[in-house]
Design a protein around this nucleic acid. Structure first.
Lengths: 192, 192
DNA sequence: ATTGCAAAACTAATGGCATTAGTTATAATA
DNA sequence: TATTATAACTAATGCCATTAGTTTTGCAAT
């Protein structure tokens, strides 16, 4: 009756992530996770603190994967090329992990050190790329915020099907990023 | 024990909206709504279909208020002035109604005609403003999508406290919108 | 090999939630 | 004043998360 399946937290969180992406955020319940693992819900408590802790772990997992994707995509690239690659990677991540992304961006209720650490790594990645444009430190911050807004906003709207399909969504994205990059350059000009 | 309080759907949805903005999205339960109305949860069912229907009504209410704010803000304005006013109104709406906004932007699970109607009114509002820039029809769509992405992304990130406070968030927004407007103009130039 | 033990998985039980069924009370109207 | 539709209620159901307490298992030490 209890052949010791060999559960652990990583397994639980991974199953939850799969569930989130395939069945939607609402499907993240301990009951559903347990079912997927052929286990009774209370058994999960030997490895996790409760449903809220699973959600926190999902946020961390999502943020970590996102960071890795962004890092790999922009690796060895600079300026425009790096931005385009990173932006593509961001949108693709959200497309591949729509459910996980929702947990990733949800504001944490408590201070989550690890999550904040990975989040800061992403900011640093963006910052390093923008450095090449020769902006002032303050303008670089503005640039980072704008890029984050664009990426998050666009990805979210695509994910929720907010854009019609007559006109190419890919083209919209390309133009938007081009516009962003040009405004970065203009900002750098002003600063000289 | 049942002095006929005079409930109706509007009252229920309004209380839910208040609750969402003050206590957060998680607090939207029939139990909490009933408590706020000094009524037992089953009484609500005389006026609403169930919790999901309340959430749909919240989405509609949010979208409607948002549309009204955007319309009023941009009324009698054109081009840059209209965009700045509308953008400000958007961000302010999210600031004033953080909880309601979450329901407003959540992808509807079923075809919601009314919601789609108001959503389309917002698109039309944006479209009318962008028309003044003399873009091609297709570029105008791209421009609308970019603006929606910027507004939603920025507002969401502000709302979830994703931006540090050392550097002015207002300045970031101003610069971002300026950059957007200039890229609109550049796009129009290319098209001539 | 056998035994002991920590931990994994279980069953049972609790409390909160949404929702349904069926009852009572009220306000409008005939 | 009597009738009736319906608002609000109580009671009951089922699902969920979680806790308590029990059984089982696999490793580890003899």
């Amino acid at each position: 009756m209890s052949p010791r399946v060999g559960l652990d937290q990583k397994m639980i969180v991974n199953v939850a992530a799969q569930l989130a992406d395939t069945e939607g955020v609402e499907s993240i319940t301990l009951a559903n996770i347990a079912k997927k693992l052929n286990v009774r819900p209370p058994s999960l408590f030997n490895h996790i603190q409760g449903l809220p802790s699973v959600k926190k772990e999902l946020a961390l997992l999502g943020m970590t994967i996102l960071y890795e994707k962004l890092k790999v995509a922009s690796n060895n690239k600079t300026k425009d090329e790096a931005i385009f690659a990173l932006a593509d990677a961001y949108v693709n991540f959200v497309k591949e992990h729509p459910g996980l992304y929702q947990f990733t961006i949800k504001a944490p209720e408590t201070d989550e050190k690890e999550l904040e650490k990975v989040s800061n790594q992403i900011i640093t990645l963006l910052s390093d790329i923008l450095t090449a444009y020769g902006l002032s430190n303050e303008d670089k911050i503005h640039g980072i915020r704008a890029l984050r807004s664009i990426l998050h906003g666009f990805s979210s709207l695509v994910q929720m099907g907010a854009f019609g399909l007559q006109i190419s969504v890919k083209d919209s994205f390309q133009l938007m990023i081009e516009g962003y990059i040009e405004s970065l350059k203009r900002l750098a000009q002003k600063n000289t």
